[in-house]
Nucleic acid binder design. Sequence first.
DNA 1: TATCCTTAGTGTACTAAAAACACTAAAGAC
DNA 2: GTCTTTAGTGTTTTTAGTACACTAAGGATA
Lengths: 220, 220
Amino acid sequence: MKFLDPTITVDVVIFTIEDGTLKTLIIQRAREPFANSPALPGGFLLAGETSKDAALRILRDKAGVDGAYLEQLYTFDDPSRDPRGPIFSVTYFALVPPGEMTIRETEHTQRPRLMSAFSLPKLAFDHNKIVSYAIERLQSKVEYTNVTYSLLPKLFTLTELQKTYESILGRTLDKRNFRKKFMELGLVEETDSFSKGGRQRPARLHRFTSRKPSQLKKFF
Amino acid sequence: MKFLDPTITVDVVIFTIEDGTLKTLIIQRAREPFANSPALPGGFLLAGETSKDAALRILRDKAGVDGAYLEQLYTFDDPSRDPRGPIFSVTYFALVPPGEMTIRETEHTQRPRLMSAFSLPKLAFDHNKIVSYAIERLQSKVEYTNVTYSLLPKLFTLTELQKTYESILGRTLDKRNFRKKFMELGLVEETDSFSKGGRQRPARLHRFTSRKPSQLKKFF
DNA sequence: TATCCTTAGTGTACTAAAAACACTAAAGAC
DNA sequence: GTCTTTAGTGTTTTTAGTACACTAAGGATA
């Protein structure tokens, strides 16, 4: 009876909102296999690291982000997923507020960029599957929890909040019902500040009453 | 830069219903670490196996079950979870209809038995955490999908169906509302058979209209 | 400085789903 | 034949969800 310890990698789906669209950080692989293919940021586990440590390291190195929301997604281990042999990928997804990423090239990754999560090109390995899985998870999370606080700046307008939901769920929501829900549930509260710089009526800025994950009965 | 490939184990939370209670298969470890402690059935990955293969093998070897519902849960890798060092556990949960298990001892496991999932003793490693996680997942699955077909025999009474839900959710449900929901959603259908042997009015036996997983809008 | 354009902000009426609730039916035990 | 036990069945009330249209305020422009 032979035991096998497959190699372990960690891949991270890093979501953010840009131009009202849900986007994911995609890099271009510098090396084989799948050299020059677009792929998720990821890498091998280093000695002494947990998978979460590795995910945090990838977030820091490739996106310049500390303290983002991070959640384990699934472990992919189909033997055909990597031509080099059986390689387990423990996957995570991260949520980063708009504009907080500092995208950096590294030795093995080129041309890191944000791409629309819903219309990605063919990615290396089984990375398209991983992204689909992450979107699915994000969509259901967003309907039953307050995680969106980690996709928005500290202060935001209710329209920005709504657009964030719409860009994740892929459908439009009713403005009045949306606001009613949030105010009734006490998830957000008014501040005394207003948005500036638009060429229209300024919008009141709001903040989340809590920036800790919490489960909710219902949502949309 | 050193890469590390931690050892990979697979642990399985095997649920079934016995005496109207949600139970889990628990074994007693024959060896260190945690010799003689109760624990989840599990083991190391064999050469060429995926984690799912290993979970199916464990189900077959320890519970004598083929073709049960099986779903990956989470990958636990806290460095302190195993005194031997960093060992990743890819965990699964399985659903087995009542009476379909053939519990077997194996070389490394003694006294396999079903125990109430909600009142387990202290288990080896982080196995209590794994069970909590599995219960949580099962509870939410049961509210939004038809997975319970895999916890019931082909033919069952509506009372058995309701008791299954109640034992998983840990609360009682209204008989009329429960039946209405199932019939309206078309999840179960009547058969011409009736339960026998009770000392009361026989109950009509029902079956699921479909035994494939499907998502539902709402439930309980 | 008046008008226009754009986004902000607000409440009510209708519809659908969930929850609460109590009696009759049929079999076996005694 | 009576008692005990579980099976089986609809309606009403309550709650949550959905649909919907106008006024407000600032910047741009003529």
